[in-house]
């Protein structure tokens, strides 16, 4: 299934979360096209370990662009159940398709109600245009 940005929820620090319309309670997390463009050429990404526990708003990894290091924050609380380890060797796919090929981690949510506190597409776009 293709993920489109309009379906996602966002942190104001540019991470997105996608939850499939099923009962898995798993959120797929990545960074937005806006963030990828602002970061410019990406050269390195540090990811968490499967099984690591995250709280909403906590740092789950770091990304380095040409000489700039930025933290990535988790939009939801839960446990990391999958990481996109192949992404580290093909960071250019984030520039091509940050919402599908560019997913970063999957988290089994401990509190799905946190999703309602995230920005919807319209609010996120407004923030980016400031």
């Amino acid at each position: 299934m293709s993920i489109t940005p309009e379906k996602l929820r966002y942190l104001n620090s540019h991470e997105w979360a996608f939850v499939a319309d099923d009962s898995s309670g798993i959120a797929t997390i990545g960074i937005s096209a806006f963030a990828v463009e602002e970061l410019t050429d990406l050269v390195f990404m540090a990811l968490p370990k499967v099984g690591q526990t995250l709280t909403a708003g906590s740092e789950f990894g770091e990304v380095e662009s040409v000489k700039a290091v930025s933290p990535m924050y988790s939009p939801v609380s839960g446990t990391v159940v999958e990481i996109h380890s192949a992404l580290v060797d093909k960071l250019e796919s984030l520039s091509v398709d940050p919402y599908n090929e560019g997913w970063i981690i999957k988290v089994k949510m401990s509190d799905p109600s946190e999703l309602s506190g995230l920005l919807d597409w319209e609010s996120y776009q407004k923030q980016c245009s400031h």
Partner: peptide, 8 residues
């Protein structure tokens, strides 16, 4: 002034 990624 919300964070907007890196500031080239």
């Amino acid at each position: 002034q919300p964070t907007k990624g890196h500031s080239e």
